[in-house]
Design a protein around this nucleic acid. Structure first.
Lengths: 195, 195
DNA sequence: GCTTCAATGTAGGCAACGTCAACAATGATG
DNA sequence: CATCATTGTTGACGTTGCCTACATTGAAGC
């Protein structure tokens, strides 16, 4: 049991970590700056030194979420595979992340709604779209995807992906439906992309 | 300027109407029972006679939203048309509603998240899925849609629809992208459904 | 090594909120 | 006309986000 120092050391990171935990466990409504401060053994106004606003904390949380999702997706890439495998991998990685971090994803897209969304956040979100575009473009180059403007294919594909993930998160679909439906969705995507 | 009666007349309906207006104009965060009461010229505890909770009001709002969406979609049906037209009509109606009621749709799906979602609400949400299934099933009967379990086609389709609407609402896609992208999305759906 | 000062944390206060309990007016039912 | 459930009011409590003024700290410059 160490004696509490006046300075926490890395309160900012601790706040983010703890906030994400509460978000995951009790939902966004249960997120209170004061409770966060109490949990970390710090005065109720301390968080304001690191986040001017509650919204600022949520923004930072969402931004970190986008960054992690971007990394996850980038890491799941397999350069030398058929389009079907590449797309399948991308979709599975996205859906897995969404299911494992439902509340966070919700927050991410809710915040992006806001016209006042920070530039960094918009940028991180756009990177997602760019990655999807890249998969499609590569498929086109390999002749496995129909020709035409990349957007006219990437948008429907990403749209399907996000919609499915959204249903998976919100339990409109049961976990079994998600597991079994995933293959059908990927097959459907492939048909929609086929030359 | 009529003198204020002690009884409002139909406070419940007035609360819902006003709440939806505030939701639309200022977002869900700006919804306060007390402010609602003030706006309607009623004491701050009056709303509790009609909604035991803030959550209860939100639930009622979401339920009304599902009902209206169901009606809108049902009204947009054209029984004697090709599958392409029927699907196109359905998609357009859904997307139009979503764009025109972005905050409301958000609320609807957010609330459905909640494990404690009321039965009526779950039911209203499922009617949506059923309508989509019906369109697909009819297409199958007419031989315009590939065979197989209805779910394996209806889920991807509805998923794409919801994802696109979601992006349209959240302005990930600009209004122009929505307008122009809609045709591409419908074409892509049709390819995914084709026999 | 001392001073200075920006960064970080604390203490107290404010208005707003959701909720509750106790009380008051109303109008429908007998 | 009396009764009484429904609907609205009042006042209070605890919690929250945020603000301002103050305290502690550690590092940079002399």
């Amino acid at each position: 049991m160490q004696t509490r120092r006046y300075h926490h050391g890395d309160l900012r990171a601790a706040l983010l970590t703890r906030a994400e935990q509460t978000l995951r466990e009790k939902g966004p409504g249960a997120l209170s700056l004061r409770e966060l401060a109490r949990d970390l053994g710090v005065s109720h106004a301390a968080p304001s030194r690191h986040f001017k606003d509650k919204q600022a904390l949520l923004d930072a949380l969402a931004l970190a979420g986008f960054d992690r999702l971007d990394e996850t997706l980038a890491a799941s890439r397999e350069p030398d595979a058929t389009f079907a495998d590449r797309l399948g991998g991308f979709v599975r990685a996205y859906v897995d992340f969404a299911v494992a971090n439902a509340q966070l994803i919700d927050l991410m897209y809710t915040i992006k709604h806001d016209p006042a969304a920070s530039e960094a956040l918009v940028k991180a979100a756009q990177r997602l779209g760019a990655m999807a575009e890249e998969v499609v473009a590569e498929g086109q180059r390999a002749g496995e995807v129909r020709e035409g403007p990349v957007d006219s294919i990437a948008i429907p594909v990403f749209t399907t992906l996000h919609g499915f993930a959204s249903f998976a998160m919100s339990r409109v679909l049961s976990p079994e439906e998600v597991a079994s439906g995933l293959d059908a969705v990927i097959a459907y995507m492939l048909r929609g992309c086929a030359p």
